[in-house]
Design a binder for these strands. Structure first.
Lengths: 198, 198
DNA sequence: TGTACATCAGTGAACGCGCGTTCACTGATGTAC
DNA sequence: TGTACATCAGTGAACGCGCGTTCACTGATGTAC
């Protein structure tokens, strides 16, 4: 079923990157097999290697894609703390907790990424670096070096709060963790936080 | 090679729990096979099911054990912020980053635990609950409900800071993340933090 | 306009391998006589 | 004290299965005439 314009194969590749992002965040990296990843995009086994050179190649591509999507979302927020706080509340919502496949790649995969090969970790490093830079710029109610520290703190706080809320069985404790996360994010990064100049 | 006193089999079981803890934190849950886990304890394949009913049974047992060890370590610290700050500095050290097998189970496995079966997640929930309670008690320079929030914040901050420092390829950025983590932990949980009563 | 052909995205069976799990067996030990 | 036996922790081969990867093939399409 071929001999389409060159945009057809590219469309399939993009579809694979998107559906794989969802699957990998839901079932984990080691937990997602090629057969499943490729079936999610409506293809069969063998089609995979026409688009990617290996599973690791796909993982690295997906990680880069996921982080760049997240960067785009963050860039779409107007500057100032209020929009960032809205982002935090949305990030720490029960909906986000209960739908890892649609959510943050770092919350879903961070410790697994740490065990991946250098190609994947390079992709992650580049992507998270850009996000870190952007968040630091948005925290301009802190002196520059503090803003960068707090940007790292805000993101790590978000990642692990969501991870913990997902890991914990007890629904009540899980909800408590989410709302504590909002309070902590504010205590750490809002203009009212200690260390802010504004 | 049997008919030892009953303490012999128990010793083997404890050895398996210990060596498996190391292996699981290093290679991940999906990344560690029974053959490897059992070989780490100096045994062969078949011995496994004399000690555990399934891989999940081992995982749950190891998770419970790891968290109770961590609780014991924390309990051994005298009360007050200074010892807790020392713990934070040690936790966010390059040594801890570079030796996941000897380190914190949450930093190594948190997102994977979130995908595990209920037995494992129950074990995690119970273990982290006790640690949360203890840390909240140690943060008594905050009003009680704030102390609990900050305890959740301090722990999640630690977990994910270490995860991020491990995931990132760039050594300089990784070190920056670790030292930002210390600053953020202090900003969030030290007696000098906003919201503290002392 | 109609037909023959070259292209190549996608198919699906097969590869060796390691997974979690099972099970008949081994052999060092403590006990019984 | 010396020998025969029962125990049972640990052995290691085997199970079916899904993994990542390979490859000969298919068949719908755009192009050439």
């Amino acid at each position: 079923m071929a001999r389409y314009g060159p945009e057809h194969k590219e469309a399939t590749r993009l579809r694979m990157i998107e559906t794989s992002g969802r699957r990998l965040k839901q079932d984990g990296i080691d937990g997602s097999g090629i057969a499943t990843l490729v079936a999610d995009a409506g293809l069969t086994n063998g089609a995979f290697y026409g688009h990617f050179s290996s599973k690791d190649d796909l993982i690295a591509t997906v990680v880069a894609d996921q982080l760049s999507r997240q960067l785009t979302v963050l860039e779409s927020f107007p500057p100032g703390w209020a929009p960032l706080e809205a982002f935090v509340r949305d990030y720490l919502s029960p909906t986000h907790r209960d739908n890892p496949g649609e959510g943050c790649p770092s919350a879903a995969l961070l410790d697994e990424v740490g065990r991946c090969n250098p190609v994947v970790r390079d992709a992650y490093t580049a992507g998270i670096g850009r996000i870190l830079d952007l968040v630091a710029r948005r925290l301009d109610h802190f002196p520059r070096p503090v803003a960068r520290e707090r940007a790292i703190g805000l993101l790590t706080l978000l990642f692990s709060t969501l991870q913990l809320a997902r890991a914990v069985q007890d629904r009540k404790l899980s909800n408590q963790i989410l709302s504590a996360g909002v309070a902590n994010a504010i205590a750490l990064a809002a203009p009212s936080a200690s260390g802010a100049t504004a």
